[in-house]
Structures are given as C-alpha cells and as structure tokens.
C-alpha cells in the first residue's frame, strides 16, 4: 500500500448556503478498505459522490493516480448506491445481463451468481427480494465489470443481523482480492471489522483519521462510538445493538 489511488485535496461542496463538505484532505491507497464515518448529515455520501465522479466539487480536487479523472473513470469504478430501485418486473438475471452488457469485458455472469449467492432468487422479480438479497444483487451489479475501486454507500443499512454478516463476508472477500474499497457507514462495529483506515466526519469536516485500532488505542477508549461521543457529544448507532 504505497501508491495513492485517490488523492483528495481541499475538497468542498456547498448547496446554496449549506456547506455539506468543508475542505477535506486525505489519500486512499491501492488495496485499502477506506471508511467514511459519521452520523447522518456529516457529509459522507456527498464526499463519496465526489470520489465516484458523480458530483462536481465546489472547490478542491480529487485525483486518480495523481491526475484528474480519466475519460473512462466510470469503467474503473463500481458503485453500490445507498438506495437504488431497479426496473420493475426484471429479475436479478435480467439485471446482471443488462449491466454486464454495458462493458467490454465483464465478469462472467456465472461467477457473479456464485460469488454473491444469487442462485436461489435468480429469476424472481426484484421487487420481491429481501433487503439482504437486494444488497447482494446490487453488489454483484457494482462488480459486473471487474472494477479497480468499489464504492459502497451504507451497504448494510436496514439489513437484519444475518444479512449484515453475510455482506461483511462478501466485502471481506473483495478485500482479499486486492480491490480498493471505499465505504460509508454509521455502524461502528462494521467500520472496525472491515476498514483499514477511517476518516471520521462531522459537519463536513475531518474529525479524526487513522486505523481503527490505533484511533481507539490512542484515545484510551473501549470502542469507536465512545471515541466519537467523547469528541462530539453525539452518539452513533452501534452495530452491536442491531446484532443483539
């Protein structure tokens, strides 16, 4: 992990009078699982949107391998949005076929179906999928073209504990493949389990950055939520509460 795949400098985003993201500076390295943490409204999704190339920064820059985004940046990244509705009446199989056809060299569908365990509901209308099944499908669609960087915007939000664990396993497998993963979450345990590096945001600004264990150790607290509480007086949702 020596080369920065994304370099973020002075990044900011405003909507009229509202400053959503306010001057962020950080780097994300190849093969890293990088987590953006913070409560609702902290600026996580807006920051992610700018790293994905989906939103234009108001100020500052995001560089890919030291340069502005190349024309084919969308071919290099896979995105799992926080809330995506797919076309009604189509099945996971139809959707995989559709999204694979957008790319020149997609991952074979059979491999995706196996990797994300889609077989049991492969031909079911997407409207009838459970939350966990749906997230697995969305993750498979994000991976259809074998991207170098994968963005996951609150991938386990609203899932039951078992589905959450399932998805963690799948994200861990992607990490093991050496992909760069960038995820947002407000679940502390999720961040501790999955991320190599964390950027904790509050009101669009950097509060802390570092490896989860290092941050906890340096602060002398028991977990990230306690750390966040001690810094801001606000609390985050603990995954543990949901799992229990």
């Amino acid at each position: 992990m020596t080369d920065a795949i994304l370099s973020i400098s002075g990044l900011g985003k405003s909507y009229d009078d509202v400053i959503a993201v306010d001057g962020l500076d950080f780097e994300i390295f190849k093969g890293q699982c990088f987590g953006l943490l913070g409560p609702n409204g902290a600026g996580k999704s807006t920051t992610l949107g700018m790293l994905e190339g989906m939103e234009e920064p108001t100020r500052g820059s995001v560089h890919y391998l030291g340069k502005p985004f190349p024309v084919d940046y969308q071919d290099r990244v896979g995105i799992q949005f926080q809330a995506t509705t797919l076309q009604d009446f189509l099945s996971p199989h139809d959707n995989l076929k559709l999204f694979s056809s957008f790319y020149d060299d997609p991952i074979p569908m059979d491999r995706l179906i196996e990797q994300f365990r889609l077989n049991d509901f492969l031909h079911r209308d997407v409207r009838r999928l459970s939350g966990g099944q749906r997230q697995r499908l969305l993750l498979a669609l994000a991976l259809a073209h074998n991207p170098e960087i994968v963005f996951l915007d609150e991938p386990t939000s609203g899932l039951d504990p078992r589905s959450r664990r399932d998805l963690w396993d799948m994200v861990s497998e992607l990490k093991a493949d050496g992909r760069t993963l960038i995820l947002t979450t407000h679940y502390m345990e999720e961040a501790e389990v999955l991320c190599d590096e964390l950027l904790i945001l509050s009101h669009g600004k950097t509060l802390l950055q570092g490896a989860p264990k290092k941050l906890i150790k340096e602060a002398g607290v028991s977990d990230l939520d306690t750390l966040f509480l001690s810094l801001t007086g606000e609390t985050l949702v603990k995954t543990q509460e949901v799992i229990e």
């Binding site: 084919d72 969308q74 071919d75 949005f81 809330a83 995506t84 509705t85």
Partner: peptide, 14 residues
C-alpha cells in the same frame, strides 16, 4: 426512474 434513483445508477455506467 429518476425519482427512484435508477437513472443515477445508470449514470454510473458508460
């Protein structure tokens, strides 16, 4: 499609 976010998902493709 736009209201449900499906167009945004398509935008993230070529």
């Amino acid at each position: 499609y736009r209201q449900s976010g499906y167009l945004r998902r398509l935008k993230a493709t070529p």
